[in-house]
Write a protein that binds this DNA or RNA. Sequence first.
DNA 1: ACAGCGAACGAGAGCGTTTTCATGGACGAC
DNA 2: GTCGTCCATGAAAACGCTCTCGTTCGCTGT
Lengths: 351, 351
Amino acid sequence: MDDGEASGGEASGKRTRSKSKPSMFDVAVRAGVSAQTVSRVSMGATNVRPATRDKVLAAMSELGYSPNSAARALRYGTFQTIGVITHKFSRTGESRTVEAIVEAARSAQYTVTLVDVESPVSTEVSDAVTRLSNQSIDGLVIIRAESVTPAMLSIPAGLPVVVSDSRFVGHHPAVGADQLEGSRRAVEHLLGLGHRTVHHVAGPDSSGPSQLRIDGWRAALDQAERPAPPIFRGDWTGRSGYEAGKHIARDTDATAVFCANDETAIGVMHALHEAGRRIPADVSVAGFDDIALAADVWPPLTTVRQDFAQIGERLLELLLRQIRNGERLEDVHETVPVELVVRESTAPPAS
Amino acid sequence: MDDGEASGGEASGKRTRSKSKPSMFDVAVRAGVSAQTVSRVSMGATNVRPATRDKVLAAMSELGYSPNSAARALRYGTFQTIGVITHKFSRTGESRTVEAIVEAARSAQYTVTLVDVESPVSTEVSDAVTRLSNQSIDGLVIIRAESVTPAMLSIPAGLPVVVSDSRFVGHHPAVGADQLEGSRRAVEHLLGLGHRTVHHVAGPDSSGPSQLRIDGWRAALDQAERPAPPIFRGDWTGRSGYEAGKHIARDTDATAVFCANDETAIGVMHALHEAGRRIPADVSVAGFDDIALAADVWPPLTTVRQDFAQIGERLLELLLRQIRNGERLEDVHETVPVELVVRESTAPPAS
DNA sequence: ACAGCGAACGAGAGCGTTTTCATGGACGAC
DNA sequence: GTCGTCCATGAAAACGCTCTCGTTCGCTGT
């Protein structure tokens, strides 16, 4: 047995760390070649004789060798890895964006490391950036760093960054759905059905997307010269929609509600049902996002569809252009179109 | 001046690559100390004079230095990173488990790299494992590798693995909710309300959790000596629940339905509403998972709550025990308790 | 005042890989 | 038959960092 004799004499001194994973050198000894022949095989180089290659391959699988990417990364200066910072990503929009990023990254031969911050405050995000850049990443995607400004973050110089839906626009390239237009279209749809005005249950005060949706709602009302009723503040959750909905249910003038997202809209419908108000006969409700369940709640929810997959793809492409070509894209701000999906939760007012 | 002559002649030739990130040596030159001292400061060692430390710190921030973790990882032999393989993680259960894992990992000073496989077939998962272990991870979490057996995966020898809810039990340590008990309790709840029997809309054929929920449903019916009606096959989506629901709505004998998950249940309710059948007066519906929206759909859904956070924590703990202490835990299979949450979608039959 | 000692810092090796350059051997051309 | 050429392979350096071991100070105790 060659491995026996190889590790028998002085090599056994080195082989002592039998616990750790085999290195290229181990494979080389086993196959009776030199270390960089193993390297050549590992990298799929052409100039190695088939017989040699087979020997090496055999040694690899016998030893269960897999290349140490730390060393490889050290050599190459790249980790083939991008970092994603997100906030509460079990929310639908976030997780679908992340999913798209992961998929796009995979087809570009990158992996994704994920950090989920408790809340999108500066210290949290800044912490996450530090941790992430200590773990080696080639680029960074920040999703909805809503209440954070770039100055707050200690982003290492030269680290490519893209952001989604945040206030970084102008400092880092950004991609986001056309939220203004989406809101406007939802409200116009409701006004077009004959509603005198449209109430709004908004997202949290600190959120950029929330503000955009408010702006779109207000713009549509202004354009139609309708009064803008006071805003209900929510926090994206169904629960907050439910609370707002209880007030709306009491207000018999309210015949149409546009909600900052689908969860909130579903919460509003919950309160309306509970109060015995019919949807859409008494009150029309529209949401935003088009989550998977929007089509299956009762009644099926009219909403604005965001193309999360496309957002994820665009984010990754902008990031890769920075990483691979060194392009500077600070001023780029892409907007991906949205689509109004009319279902049964909206209808002309009964009166 | 040794540093003077060192950097004066040939060292300046080295500095040519001003493009790339500054290294420890650059900082050392700038601060007029050795690379060693920079390392000490970087690691927070105590035996460095405050004045020296300040000089180094200043040099670091002037140069925008951040440590190259490839080199660090190479030296330490660890990336402080774990890999997570999941399938369609924008589904609620998956993403909440991942979220918990990420959080637990963070507090253990680990980061998480994520791979989302298109479908849980062997080639996909196997691919993912390969890619991930090329990326140097210290451990691996596999979430719901439903139709995969361990032999299919080329998991590098010695790589710690934990799995959630899969058929790996017995080969790798596993953590999962007590799905059998959860299903049983949901069905018993419905029978206890006076329903003669309970219909079931199941998950896909290939899924382990789906099978467990079927088993629990059947066990409860058997124990109460009730007939088990034919199963409706779903695929976890609301849409599939809707399709099943259309059949159930036509069957006036059906007064109670237990669904494999909440999305499916919501789809069933959609079909029932559409057919004019009242919930729960005509038909009671129960789900599984307790997703965030379960409380806000109409009527609020009775369901079995899984503690995803705890599952994530336990998974990570089991993984870390393998990584840090080298424990072998193949036979460990933890079950985390579930909780029946009764809301308004279930009630005694009207008759 | 001098040996002894500990603190502060520097020099060098090594982690596992890829890259560059050197070397040996086989083969074809003359 | 000999030389040149190319192909397969090996040796050594380098990537940036941390660890181990020395070395140089400045200080205290007698």
